[in-house]
Amino acid sequence: MNSFTFTQAAAVDAAVREKASHEGAAYIGGGTNLVDLMKENVARPTHLIGLKKLGLDTIENTPDGGLRLGALATNADTAYHPEVISRYPLLNQAILAGASPQLRNMATDGGNLMQRTRCYYFYDLATPCNKREPGTGCSAIGGYNRVCGILGTSDSCIATHPSDMCVALAALDTTVRVSGPNGERTIKFEDFHRLPGDHPERDNTLEPGELITGLDLPAKGFAQHFSYLKLRDRTSYAFALVSVAAALELDGNTIKDARLALGGVAHKAWRDKAAEALLVGQPATADTFRRVAAKVLENAKGYGENTFKIELAKRAIVRALKQATEMKATVDTNAYFQPSAFNS
């Protein structure tokens, strides 16, 4: 970890100004990923701007019937918020599928988006990695790539985004609110993270100095039919091999609206709108789900150690859609918590 200065920012505009005035500065929210990366010498900020005092930790209803998550709200406070539990249970499920209770107590919602990949090579300075050091090559290609991507990869990088929360945020059509040197703007969630292409060092489309201030969930929360299914190497506290966020609106057995996003398979939460369109108007049957799963994975590419993810993802999609369809429209408002039972 290199040496750095630290200030606690008092307001968003002050934080943004401070970032602009310090080369090598970084914002720090919960610190769960940044401090980790600093200890690995992957991140080497020279100045940290603490965000704790910005007050962006509230969760409140928006006039359009949606919900605004303050960027500094913790993952735990978000998952267990009554409005999230009752209206966006998919988000509750996704958050609780990630990390551990103590990490969720620290990690912020904005920070969750800013997580960097868990690719082994990105974390290990002894190996080349285009994301860490552009131009050095991708060690995961041809190497140990069990955790790596199968969709939207490039010859430069096959890393995945590790978040569970983001998979639900993608499925729910979230809008990301940011503040930067040029003022405020919003970014559609699907445009927030990028695919690696030739610039895997860029995880997202934030402009220099921009700070996430909030996440806006639209009114539609798919609270009646949803599933977050996460498959991993142990029952809990492991990153996803494949995860699926599925949300349906049903009219009888006919699908009226659908959302489908995958985690653990791409450089970003992989929302597939074409597949969603294929679901709409169809009966909610295993046949439909299988056809859609095949479509989602149509252009998937395996890299050896992770090729199994193609088949696993197909099966997971079918299962998640089935679970979303069959679930009873009752929500446990106490805490929407599905213990890591079999098959999830």
Partner: peptide
């Protein structure tokens, strides 16, 4: 690289309580 790549407790999986 002749190197163990999952040299962490996040990636060298030991059983958890669940």
């Amino acid at each position: 690289f002749g190197r163990y790549m999952n040299h962490s407790l996040a990636e060298y999986h030991v059983p958890v309580n669940a």
